[in-house]
């Protein structure tokens, strides 16, 4: 069912990751991604995996949820692994099966790539999407980008658009479900026939969906105007963001982690990218 999509979903909670300032979380995510790409050898990858696991534990989000989030990427992960395993050349030949040659370097590279993708996905979703409500996220983004408004870029409008878009994803999913059921009741068949026929069968869903989205957008605009919404000029926030000690502590931890990775790269021997 469409309702079961969890990727990019917020799970309310009270963990330290939940309570971080969203601005800091965005900065931390960027730093975290940089650190992942700094990893050069297996020891560094092991270290970053442990670090990511620690973040998952800190967030208090169940392992099942996290695994469910990775599931849609299994195909990409498998493809990456196999591609690197078979086509990455090197000097230490491990196996030779006809035209297929697997090198030690290729195997290591495959492992490194998979670890990198999984850490990237799990870490950033634990830091951002799972533990930050969409409102906080766009709020943080708006504040981070606010210097750009000096250049006459519509930062507030941009973040408002994002907030609204995020807000309406579940609504649209529900709506799609409803319309699909209604058309099924009239004998629509979405799951059989040629590709063209299946694409055609989507028309009875897409048109009502578009129409109701436009209607919703119009209604929302009227409702906002009724409350005198006039864009970002002179608008204040009900909740002000404050950086606190824990935000800086986390920043320190991430920087430390980056330094550790650099040291491991340099001083621990073994396979290196």
């Amino acid at each position: 069912m469409l309702k079961d999509i969890t990727l990019g979903q917020f799970f309310p909670g009270k963990s330290i990751l939940h309570r971080l300032d969203p601005r800091m979380k965005i900065v931390l995510s960027i730093l975290y991604i940089v650190v992942i790409f700094l990893c050069k050898n297996l020891a560094a990858f092991a270290f970053i995996t442990l670090f990511t696991a620690a973040m998952v534990v800190l967030s208090g989000i169940s392992l099942r949820t996290i695994l469910k989030g990775i599931k849609p990427l299994i195909f990409i992960l498998a493809f990456t692994a196999i591609y690197n395993l078979f086509f990455y050349g090197g000097d230490r030949l491990l196996v030779k099966l006809g035209f297929i040659e697997i090198y030690y370097e290729g195997a290591m590279y495959a492992v490194a790539m998979v670890v990198r993708i999984v850490c990237l996905l799990v870490g950033s979703s634990v830091l951002l999407t799972y533990t930050t409500s969409p409102i906080m996220l766009t709020d943080g983004l708006e504040r981070l980008l606010s210097p750009l408004s000096k250049l006459k870029l519509p930062v507030h409008e941009f973040s408002m658009m994002m907030t609204i878009a995020l807000r309406f994803i579940p609504t649209l999913i529900e709506e799609t479900d409803k319309i699909m059921n209604a058309q099924k009741a009239r004998g629509s068949d979405f799951s059989s026939g040629s590709l063209v026929r299946r694409a055609k069968a989507l028309i009875p869903i897409l048109i009502p969906l578009f129409i109701s989205s436009f209607r919703r957008a119009g209604d929302l605009a009227v409702a906002m105007e009724c409350r005198c919404y006039r864009g970002g000029n002179g608008r204040t926030k009900m909740t002000q963001l404050h950086l606190s000690f824990r935000d800086f502590a986390m920043l320190f931890v991430i920087l430390l982690c980056g330094a550790a990775v650099l040291l491991i790269n340099r001083f621990v021997p073994g396979f290196s990218l």
Partner: peptide, 9 residues
């Protein structure tokens, strides 16, 4: 369904 007019296409 309820509000069936939304499924006209």
């Amino acid at each position: 369904f309820q509000y069936p007019e939304y499924q006209l296409f």
